[in-house]
């Protein structure tokens, strides 16, 4: 492996925590620690973190699983922006010789680069982001859903989320109000509102039209800008706002 090294070294600053998160302090104090890491071809940010953990400091904590952009486990703040690290090559984010890696924003820090994803997924549950099948549909014959129908296409656009929380860390509204449901959960609800097999799309709308829901979005579009799957949660949330608006005007909100 070492023979594809081109001798250059990268200066890597990694944020190390001094304590775990508490209820009062989601992001406790920490400090930057710096290492020199040999540059390799096609090296990813995750490769860099792994190299440091294996060769310099086994105590460095971080989290990953699939390494191929499917599981949504390895997201961190890279050069100040949230990204999944396994599919982010050094060459695309390093301009010069320095790389900074920190834990995701808006989530409690467990240790170093590992954040607690529980609040993120709790909000999916709070938003009612689960499919509820329509029991009135004859289960034997199965209602056909045309792939090219408008509703199906609208749902499809937003459906490839892997739950990596990059959008959640990028969102300023989440940073401002702790109870805001966030882009990922709302994006998921938008797919359900458009799902022709859903028992009650309106119930889904009602669940996210409150104070902590879609109406609080400022459309900053950081989620759309940084989503590694190139989804557009801002557009999904705009759809939810539009439907809530019309539902209210129709007197059924």
């Amino acid at each position: 492996m070492d023979n594809n090294s081109d001798q250059r070294e990268l200066t890597v600053h990694i944020w190390r925590s001094e304590a775990s998160a508490s209820d009062d302090d989601l992001q406790p104090d920490g400090a930057w620690q710096t290492w020199e890491v040999p540059v390799r071809n096609s090296q990813t940010v995750l490769d860099v973190v792994t190299w440091i953990q294996r060769h310099r400091d086994p105590d460095l904590s971080y989290r990953y699983a699939c390494r191929v952009g499917m599981c949504g486990t390895c997201a961190m703040t890279v050069q100040g922006k949230p990204r999944w690290t396994c599919r982010t090559r050094i060459g695309t984010v390093v301009d010069g010789n320095e790389l900074t890696i920190a834990p995701l924003r808006n989530l409690p820090i467990i240790k170093d680069l590992a954040t607690d994803m529980a609040p993120f997924f709790d909000k999916w549950a709070e938003a009612g982001a689960q499919f509820v099948p329509d029991r009135n549909v004859d289960q034997q014959t199965m209602a056909p859903v045309k792939p090219d129908s408008r509703a199906r296409r609208t749902a499809d656009v937003a459906i490839e989320c892997i739950g990596c929380a990059v959008c959640y860390a990028a969102c300023d509204t989440v940073a401002w109000r702790a109870d805001y449901l966030g882009p990922a959960a709302l994006n998921r609800v938008w797919t359900l509102v458009n799902d022709e097999r859903e028992a009650s799309p309106k119930e889904h709308l009602k669940a996210v039209a409150g104070e902590s829901g879609c109406l609080s979005c400022h459309s900053h579009q950081s989620c759309a800008e940084l989503c590694p799957k190139h989804l557009n949660p801002t557009a999904s949330i705009a759809g939810l706002k539009r439907k809530s608006f019309l539902l209210a005007l129709a007197g059924r909100s």
């Binding site: 009602k206 669940a207 039209a209 409150g210 104070e211 109406l215 809530s244 209210a248």
Partner: peptide
Amino acid sequence: QHKETYRETWAFV
């Protein structure tokens, strides 16, 4: 929850 949702939606509208 319902009343809160109703009020917020109307504030938005």
